[in-house]
């Protein structure tokens, strides 16, 4: 993300070079170790992004290869005036927002429950991380056909057990199906981060609270939650960044119907079905801008943690 490359201004003093080797040599070695990775990353991500910006300023449909040329910001004008961008932005925010909130809340619940010691805790944790490991394409297919199918799905069978009428999940509530699947896959992720937070808690403080006669709820509210704040932020932000680009369940379950056409799916449709290179590139740039807004918040939080810990100590 080139825009974000304006790095933090405060710089730590450089560590003194290791004894017995020249400072210049140490630096040269470090650069030699660093550059292969840096160059690979630049070639594979930054250069294509620059090309995307360039394409977004072009009139270019693959069906009309002769009619190609510079159009300035025309693509952006049509993207913004089209209406599909705004509705797609809305869909992205709705899908990402609800899945992130739900998985963080559920993740918190499971983290607290699985932090206690109880019979079979190890097995329970193993089962709980599984949804995060399941291939998203497999998850989407199984949820759509095995759980949400209107006639034979388990969801409607469950509703029937408690006397509720069946629901046409896939056709009438596509948004719900997407959010459920994403929440299911990301709850373990949130849980793992929050569990790490719970385990990093200072046990003495908790004991002191117990000695002082604070109840479990009171201790959780006034000691554990404030301590977890940072971990919640990280879970929310990382999940948001991953979910902003989510594609698999939308392509597999809804194909963008019922208000689920997120930015990444819209771009895919325009570029690879509509073959509108210029316009799709403009969508790409806009998607990056949206992500930057979220990512810069995320990066700030990560670096706050990072600087209190110190670079390499």
């Amino acid at each position: 993300m080139t825009v974000l490359m304006t790095a933090p201004t405060r710089r730590r003093p450089r560590r003194p070079p290791p004894a017995g080797s020249g400072r210049a040599r140490g630096l040269a070695v470090s650069r030699a170790l660093l550059w292969p990775a840096l160059a690979t990353s630049i070639v594979l991500t930054q250069i294509p992004f620059v090309l995307t910006i360039y394409y977004s300023l072009q009139r270019w449909n693959m069906l009309r290869p002769g009619d190609r040329g510079f159009t300035g910001l025309d693509n952006y004008v049509s993207v913004l005036s089209d209406g599909s961008f705004l509705s797609s932005l809305g869909a992205t925010v709705a899908v990402t927002g609800s899945s992130v909130v739900l998985s963080t809340l559920l993740g918190m619940l499971f983290a607290v429950l699985l932090d206690r010691s109880f019979l079979g805790r190890g097995v329970a944790r193993t089962l709980m991380i599984t949804p995060f490991l399941v291939m998203p394409a497999a998850a989407a297919l199984v949820w759509k056909w095995s759980i949400f199918d209107a006639a034979t799905g388990m969801a409607n069978w469950g509703l029937g057990l408690v006397g509720l009428p069946p629901v046409a999940w896939n056709t009438e509530l596509p948004m719900v199906t997407i959010i459920v699947v994403l929440t299911w896959q990301y709850t373990p992720f949130a849980m793992l981060i929050l569990l790490a937070g719970l385990q990093a808690q200072n046990k003495d403080v908790l004991e002191a609270a117990a000695v002082d006669g604070a109840g479990a709820l009171r201790t959780f509210g006034s000691i554990t939650l404030p301590h977890l704040r940072q971990y919640v932020e990280i879970a929310v932000l990382l999940a948001s960044i991953m979910l902003l680009q989510v594609f698999d369940p939308i392509a597999i379950m809804t194909r963008g119907t019922g208000g689920t056409k997120t930015l990444s799916y819209l771009l895919y449709e325009r570029a690879f079905i509509g073959l509108e290179v210029g316009e799709a590139a403009a969508y790409g740039v806009m998607t990056v801008l949206v992500t930057i807004v979220v990512a810069s918040v995320a990066l700030r939080t990560l670096f706050k943690v990072f600087s209190t810990e110190g670079v390499g100590r």
Partner: peptide, 15 residues
């Protein structure tokens, strides 16, 4: 490095 991780595939897929 961390900011390239946050870059959506949308940014580079067309080229």
């Amino acid at each position: 490095f961390i900011s390239t991780r946050f870059m959506p595939v949308a940014a580079s897929i067309i080229p």
